[in-house]
Design a protein around this nucleic acid. Structure first.
Length: 297
DNA sequence: CGCCGAAACAGCAATCTCCT
DNA sequence: AGGAGATTGCTGTTTCGGCG
């Protein structure tokens, strides 16, 4: 039988054979999309849609082609976790996507963020997606005139080349601990260049796991190592929490650890591309009023 | 025209919730 | 338990428009 007429819907989870794939030509935008997926390691459909497309269906149309042609891999979170009925697709760099980045953009092997061993831990993935949701918001917001997101370092950069600080543990002994932020980024604004560490807290870990991280930041700055690595004193530390209640707990922890006004707090659901830079959603430690991240009082 | 992509639309599919 | 309905995302089709 001639199966070119009888072809049904393309499967969602499995890729079809090469001969059954719809034709496609890689566009400039596709390439930028691949670079972003590589930089972020995993992005949801809605995140890619916000970054690269004007409509939902166009994004799905394009992403389906990129998936079936092996430029992207596609994963479904709800198969593994007990998420609600929605099961948004999550995209990672695929085999041919990696080839494109190497052949067309000169990426080295170390620049490719392919999930090791084929599996990315799923609980880590949820954390990664939360970080990326903040990153997408910043990326979109920084398209406004006068802004530029000039650099974003994620955790893997710090893991590849860690800085260590000495902090005291509970028994008073000095211990060497690495500085592993969820992100570090540099943002040019009409009012100058701002630099940030990012901590995304989804409320799934014990609060006691958070305070050592603050001790690490405090030691990193106090020892001059931050200044040495990044050639600047400018720094704010953004703590984005899953809820107001959680944020309040985190604020108490930071205050108790001797944190100061360089710590700024917001909640995940308040952060989007419209609000993240210029809406009063941020609480600076020690201040009562909410301020915008950029251009506040 | 032929080709491709964007957008809108209608209906399918995977999953959860509720109900017996 | 297990199945119907609801929910939400995805697929595939169609239509339109740009471009060589």
């Amino acid at each position: 039988m001639t199966d070119d007429e009888k072809r049904g819907r393309l499967p969602r989870h499995r890729r079809v054979a090469e001969s059954e794939r719809p034709p496609m030509v890689l566009t400039e935008r596709d390439c930028e999309l691949l670079r972003m997926v590589n930089a972020c390691r995993a992005l949801r459909t809605d995140q890619l849609e916000a970054l690269f497309f004007g409509s939902r269906s166009t994004a799905q149309f394009r992403l389906a082609k990129l998936f079936h042609h092996e430029y992207l891999n596609r994963h479904f979170l709800s198969v593994v976790s007990d998420a609600p009925a929605r099961s948004p697709a999550i995209y990672t760099l695929g085999k041919r996507g990696a080839q494109v980045l190497v052949s067309r953009f000169g990426y080295e092997r170390g620049d490719l963020r392919l999930p090791k061993g084929g599996t990315l831990g799923w609980h880590l993935l949820e954390h990664l997606l939360a970080i990326n949701s903040f990153r997408v918001a910043i990326t979109l917001a920084a398209r406004a005139p006068g802004f530029q997101l000039s650099s974003w370092l994620d955790e893997t950069v710090f893991r590849a080349k860690p800085d260590y600080v000495q902090i005291q543990d509970r028994s008073g002994r000095l211990r060497k601990k690495p500085v592993f932020p969820d992100g570090y980024f540099v943002l040019s604004t009409p009012r100058g260049t701002a630099r940030f560490f990012l901590e995304v807290d989804r409320g799934t870990e014990e609060l006691s796991r958070f305070s050592p991280q603050i001790a690490v930041y405090e030691a990193y700055v106090a020892s001059g190592q931050y200044q040495a690595r990044f050639q600047t004193k400018s720094l704010r530390i953004l703590v984005v929490a899953s809820s107001e209640k959680r944020s309040a707990s985190l604020q108490r922890v930071v205050a108790r650890m001797g944190g100061d006004g360089k710590y700024w707090f917001a909640t995940l659901d308040q952060v989007n591309s419209q609000t993240v830079l210029t809406a009063p959603i941020w609480r600076q430690l020690g201040e009562n009023r909410l301020q915008p991240l950029i251009g506040g009082g």
